[in-house]
Design a protein around this nucleic acid. Structure first.
Length: 402
RNA sequence: GGCCCGUUGGUCAAUCGGUUAAGACGCCUCCCUUUCACGGAGGAAUGAGGGGUUCGAUUCCCCUACGGGCUACCA
């Protein structure tokens, strides 16, 4: 039992704080100077308890002892119990701290292997002792303290604030702090496939030695061995994370991608119609790292580009090109069905007749139709959006260019 | 400060005493491509420093340096 008030604890820290000991602990020596059942008489303790004096229950770390634990990743780790403080086990409000709770929970849940971050290693001796003191040491789980994920720019472990600061998600899914209502971005909402997220995470601090990197959850489970877990922390690399996603987008079927792509399009206000989207996905998926990239890559199939980047073509624009496009527009009206090869041939013939290089005309055409310098081959796009939309977009662009 | 854990290219990393020290991401060059990607072929780039042990150390040991974690009635 310890009856020290927060103020008294603070006073103790101030009293014992020195340059060589910036954070004094409630340890075997200091506890002799504090108000607890080791320094008070049994009667005093009983009286305090009877008077419902606020108190906590601390673990009494043995003086001059040693706790050794076997870690599956790091081997034997030893701690001198003099260096570990008398951690609070039960708080004044009656609630257990993590230290007590984790041991009791793991015991009740019959946990065989306890995996946790390396930041828990310093308090492991408290937990080991608790398993012993509670009389459960036969059932103590095997320990594994995993390496941490570090900030990309050094300076410590990755925290949720780094996401905002450096522009990448930190949590699996969007998470809003109920208290501060602060939003932390999630990998899912940013357009990561679950498979890619799991894959990326698993390969941070572990590999199977084969050099392969793309694994499904099932493959990961089959190949996983504890002895191949890395000991040092790994800096998070968003570029690599995106690469994993890109690989999984390439690997995924149209059926799997369809609902996800549809959701991202819908969120961007684009209503994608059904048979069209299925044909578009395989056409553009190689150009997408994140699911949200599908928005830019397929929006123009469903709606005219709102602000085509005409500046890209304006510099090299002249009246002969305007004339060419007007001629082409006329010829287009005669076309019954849109066939990519036929359209391209016709386009090239007209270009030759006008004595303009097709290269100087295809880029402008692309910008008029899709809005920028990206996307699949232009004539394939025309077959999908149709003659009518093509004419409309070219006319709009010509107005913008004049 | 103390205690604990770690340290191979910019990043993730293979190597379990003898290798030209893999591979991937990113970067650069070229090819394919009248866009952007995909794909293909190349390239630059690594054993923190110092001592040992050994015929031989990236690999084993020690020291130093550096990095990380913990040091709350938070987890």
């Amino acid at each position: 039992y310890a009856f020290d008030t927060p103020e008294e604890l603070e006073a103790m820290r101030n009293r014992f704080r020195t340059e060589s000991n910036p954070s004094p602990q409630y340890d075997a020596r200091i506890r002799q100077e504090m108000k607890n059942s080791l320094t008070m008489t049994p009667d005093e303790v009983q009286a305090a308890l009877d008077n419902a004096l606020p108190h906590v229950i601390r673990i009494k770390m043995p003086a001059g002892g040693e706790v050794a634990l076997q870690d599956m990743i790091r081997g034997e780790v030893r701690f001198n119990t003099d260096q570990v403080d008398d951690k609070v086990l039960l708080k004044a409000d009656g609630m257990p701290t993590y230290h007590l709770a984790v041991v009791v929970d793991d015991h009740d849940m019959q946990i065989s292997h306890a995996f946790r971050g390396e930041e828990w290693l310093p308090s492991a001796p408290v937990h080991v002792l608790l398993w012993e003191y509670l009389g459960w040491q036969e059932r103590m789980p095997l320990w594994a303290h995993l390496p941490l994920i570090l900030k990309p720019d050094g300076q410590g472990k990755l925290s949720k604030r780094d996401g905002d600061r450096l522009g990448f998600p930190v949590f699996a899914m969007d998470w809003q702090d109920p208290k501060s209502s602060e939003l932390t971005k999630g990998f899912r909402e940013m357009g990561f496939l679950p498979e890619a997220f799991v894959n990326m995470l698993a390969l941070m601090g572990w590999n199977d030695g084969s050099g392969e990197e793309i694994f499904s959850l099932e493959e990961l489970a089959n190949r996983f061995t504890i002895d191949r877990i890395q000991k040092g922390g790994a800096k998070f690399d968003f570029e690599k994370a995106k690469w994993f996603n890109q690989e999984w987008i390439k690997k995924s079927s149209v059926e799997d991608l369809l609902p996800l792509v549809n959701a991202h399009l819908a969120q961007a206000g684009i209503i994608a119609t059904s048979p069209l989207l299925e044909t578009i996905i395989p056409l553009v998926k190689d150009r997408c790292q994140l699911l949200r990239d599908f928005v830019q890559q397929s929006a123009y199939f469903f709606q005219d580009p709102p602000n085509p980047e005409l500046d890209l073509i304006r510099a090299k624009w002249d009246v002969t090109k305007t004339a060419f496009f007007n001629t082409w527009l006329d010829h287009l009206s005669g076309a019954v069905e849109a066939d990519a090869a036929a359209l391209e041939t016709q386009f090239k013939e007209l270009a030759a007749a006008a004595q303009i290089k097709t290269g100087e005309l295809q880029l402008p055409l692309r910008v008029m139709l899709v809005g920028g310098k990206f996307g699949p081959p232009v004539f394939e796009i025309i077959t999908l959006i149709g003659i009518e939309a093509t004419q409309r977009r070219v006319k709009t662009a010509l107005k913008g260019l004049s």
